[in-house]
Design a binder for these strands. Structure first.
Length: 567
RNA sequence: CGGGACGUAGCGCAGCUUGGCAGCGCGCCUGCUUUGGGAGCAGGAGGUCGCGGGUUCAAAUCCCGCCGUCCCGACCA
């Protein structure tokens, strides 16, 4: 590609709406442009990187035995009603993406489990056709409340999503592992340091699932990592263990004392009421929730910890509160809850010795001196506090640390979640009985990967793409070609021969000063820069330079092409 | 959805407090000179000052409403 013809304009300054390095550089180097908040155009350079990433994905998924297809981006709303997710997505997200057209109401597809299940279900009638894993690379739409950081969090995004169909759970787990491994190879080839972590499944559903995390300061996720045993889990799913108890505190039992605490329902406010002698750790945070089975539950966590709501649990809404008069919003406490049919579950940390300050279940009042087992009881113990750095690994007990990261992919063992609700998911099993698919699904954020790659591979001068993702392999710059026919002739010849040799070359044939060419080459970030100039030509060489390492070599003019094409 | 900030030429910004000819740098066009790390000189084009309303002799500037954009939080398939 001759740069004089390429649709690219590099910017010396980043636009004011770009906050993080990846966003600034992708815009400055002319890869992307914003059309609306969270909606981006891929200019030719950006599209080339996108195609490179897609190529790696296709090669690895194809090699793993997956088949590519393309599902519609527009889904009949009925499909979402059949799966029950139209309601699950709530009152705003899905309706915001519905389109009324002649022929019905459609949804701008946010994800494709429903469509793929009915599609494959219509084609597969026998176990002989299984196992089967299909994938697509497709645009998805999400009613993103807050688009952020350029391509990292958008309302329209490109995703590679695979779906496996198997005869039973064991076979599904084998397929899961196959795609899982393919994803690891994809990230490896793209030069990304990825950690698979245990995660919550959210609205996709299913049992076992993993997020593929790339550690990054701009990440919106955090995962818990154990340097000792390798345990890794999203903070939303991570659990901890308490160290062995060495003995009771010996603290004397205290009396239950009522305190008048009007308007102080937040822990920090109550702590302020008590002053310096009591810390947040002495308060019992009591949250009214509905657990995954729909049971009204009181969740207890020490006041200095954040609670972690397991998947499927939700906070009380106003209707729940009016149905349970024993729970007074803002002044909830555990005392006597079982009598009102409320199950009490507590984080392990609540098992410590000593007294607690608790809500009095009476407006504007708290109780001090509450003791476990004397004043309140716990029906079930677990790890319900959000894990923090220094907590103990649930597997090996060593101290864990938190790692900020970007979620690059998410894989799920769905099992029968979709096949039992979507029509056509049945097939005849080997023994002649009727069975339904055991499924897995695997999403990889393709457009987001551009941001992650740019974030991880850049310096203060610009981007520095890994070879597999680079828009071009070689950036060829001719210096002063306008006043030196020899330079122009040599550069043209090298360009033609490199292209003939199958190498993707960006040829800077523009009539601009050397400084501009060097600066643009650094900004655009092609792995190798070749410079043809009068200086080098006089000594019979062209200059080779690595964008990432800065290494420089001189190649004989006549051997340049053969050396580069050969390697 | 809650909190905050911003909106002036393609990009980055000043001007607004105290109302009075719409500016600067980069980029763009023409010419000449220059040419190994974002060149110099000369000339030029480009604006509904986000939109609507109000106050005023006069509004980029003051007031009201709306829209858009970014940041923090909530949410996140």
């Amino acid at each position: 590609m001759r740069m004089s013809r390429l649709l690219v304009r590099t910017l010396r300054e980043a636009p004011a709406d770009a906050e993080v390095a990846s966003h600034q550089l992708l815009v400055r180097a002319g890869y992307i442009r914003r059309l609306a908040s969270g909606v981006y155009t891929f200019l030719p350079l950006g599209l080339r990187v996108l195609h490179q990433v897609e190529r790696v994905i296709r090669e690895e998924l194809d090699a793993a035995g997956c088949q590519e297809l393309l599902l519609p981006a527009l889904h009949p709303l009925e499909l979402w009603e059949q799966s029950g997710r139209a309601a699950l997505f709530g009152s705003d997200a899905l309706p915001a993406m519905t389109v009324d057209a002649r022929g019905g109401t459609f949804v701008l597809g946010p994800t494709h489990e429903e469509v793929v299940t009915v599609t494959v279900g219509a084609e597969v009638d026998s176990y002989r056709q299984l196992p089967l894993t299909v994938y697509q690379i497709q645009v998805k739409f999400r009613d993103e409340a807050r688009p952020r950081f350029g391509l990292l969090r958008t309302r329209e995004l490109i995703m590679a999503d695979a779906y496996s169909f198997d005869v039973d759970k064991d076979a599904m787990q084998f397929s899961y592992r196959t795609v899982f491994d393919a994803y690891l190879r994809i990230f490896g080839r793209l030069g990304l340091d990825v950690t698979p972590v245990e995660a919550e499944s959210g609205a996709i559903g299913g049992d076992v699932n993993h997020e593929f995390m790339v550690p990054s300061a701009v990440g919106e996720d955090e995962f818990v990592s154990c340097p000792s045993c390798g345990y890794a889990a999203n903070v939303e799913a991570a659990t901890r263990r308490l160290p062995e108890r060495v003995g009771g505190s010996g603290a004397a039992p205290t009396d239950l004392v009522e305190h008048h605490t009007p308007g102080r329902s937040a822990i920090a406010d109550v702590v302020a009421y008590f002053g310096d002698d009591v810390t947040a750790a002495a308060f019992l945070k009591s949250m009214a929730v509905v657990d995954a089975e729909g049971r009204p539950t009181l969740l207890l966590v020490a006041g200095d910890r954040e609670a972690r709501l397991p998947s499927g649990w939700r906070l009380f809404d106003d209707a729940d509160f009016s149905a349970h008069s024993s729970l007074v919003k803002g002044y909830i406490g555990p005392i006597g809850q079982q009598a009102d049919g409320i199950r009490v579950v507590a984080d392990l940390g609540v098992g410590r010795d000593g007294s607690w300050v608790v809500g009095a279940n009476r407006a504007d009042h708290h109780l001090g001196g509450a003791l476990l087992d004397r004043d309140f009881t716990v029906d079930e113990w677990g790890s319900f506090a959000q894990v923090v750095t220094g907590d103990h690994c649930p597997r090996c007990g060593e101290a864990v640390q938190l790692v900020r990261s970007v979620e690059a992919a998410h894989t799920f063992q769905l099992g029968y979640k979709y096949s039992e609700v979507m029509p056509g998911s049945d097939f005849v099993a080997e023994d002649g009985s009727e069975a339904i698919f055991s499924m897995g699904c695997y999403g990889l954020g393709v457009s987001r990967l551009l941001a992650v790659l740019a974030e991880e591979h850049h310096d203060d001068r610009g981007l520095a793409w890994p070879t597999e993702a680079a828009p071009f392999q070689i950036h060829l710059a001719a210096l002063g070609a306008g006043r030196s026919p020899e330079v122009a002739e040599a550069a043209d010849r090298i360009y033609d021969q490199l292209v003939a040799g199958g190498i993707e070359v960006l040829y800077d044939d523009r009539d601009v000063s050397p400084g501009v060419k060097f600066a643009d080459a650094d900004l655009i970030g092609t792995p190798v820069r070749l410079v043809v100039g009068a200086k080098g030509l006089a000594r019979g060489v062209v200059e080779w330079r690595s964008r990432t390492s800065g290494e420089e070599r001189e190649l004989p003019v006549d051997a340049t092409v053969s050396e580069l094409v050969g390697s």
